[in-house]
């Protein structure tokens, strides 16, 4: 909100003061195709009397850059939660080592999910009795970089209980 006090001189020489409030109303339009025409609308507050200015700015958009690969691991309450939003809500980390150990509990009505980029090598699960089945390959958008790439997703059976998971990133076979 922009506030200003305006003074108006009357015929009798006295001043009249007015309190003027102005508000900036923003809009954003993304052009992603050549020659595209897009429309938008800006709602004016009810008591607005007039529009006193407008400004238009070009904002170039930085293309998302592929970052370091991430793994995602966690549990969900439905076996079919295979979308980017769900996957990125799981715990995640970088592949800083070839061995990873996790401790998880998934009761009845819960499934364990593990996802990693397709570009990564194959992984193996040791000593847990946990059966992970590669279920889908889906595009996942990294929330930090905005970069989207395909991820392989593995899903456990329902309610495997408390499990200690050791993953080893090995050679692609």
């Amino acid at each position: 909100m922009i506030r200003e006090i305006q003074t108006t001189e009357r015929l009798n020489g006295e001043d009249e003061k007015y309190f003027v409030r102005r508000k900036i109303l923003p809009a954003e339009i993304i052009i992603e195709q050549m020659g595209r025409v897009k429309t938008f609308r800006i709602r004016l507050p009810k008591s607005v009397r007039r529009v006193t200015g407008a400004m238009v700015v070009l904002d170039t958009m930085v293309q998302p850059v592929q970052g370091a690969p991430k793994w995602y691991l966690g549990k969900g309450h439905a076996s079919g939660l295979l979308n980017s939003g769900f996957i990125t809500s799981l715990d995640s980390g970088a592949f800083e080592d070839s061995l990873f150990q996790f401790h998880l509990t998934a009761e009845k009505g819960q499934w364990i999910y593990y996802a990693q980029p397709v570009r990564m090598n194959f992984f193996q699960v040791f000593d847990t009795g946990l059966k992970l089945i590669k279920t889908a390959t889906i595009p996942v958008t990294d929330l930090e970089t905005g970069f989207t790439e395909d991820y392989d997703v593995w899903v456990s059976d329902e309610g495997p209980g408390t499990v200690d998971i050791t993953l080893e990133i090995g050679e692609n076979k």
Binding site: I2, Q6, Y18, F19, V20, R21, R22, K23, I24, L25, P26, A27, E28, I29, I30, I31, E32, Q33, M34, F40, I42, L44, P45, S47, V48, R49, R50, V51, T52, G53, A54, M55, V56, V57, L58, D59, T60, M61
Partner: peptide, 16 residues
Amino acid sequence: LPYKIRVWVLAEYEPE
């Protein structure tokens, strides 16, 4: 492409 256009409209209320 892509690029973003940002628009600001300055609206004024009735003076008090």
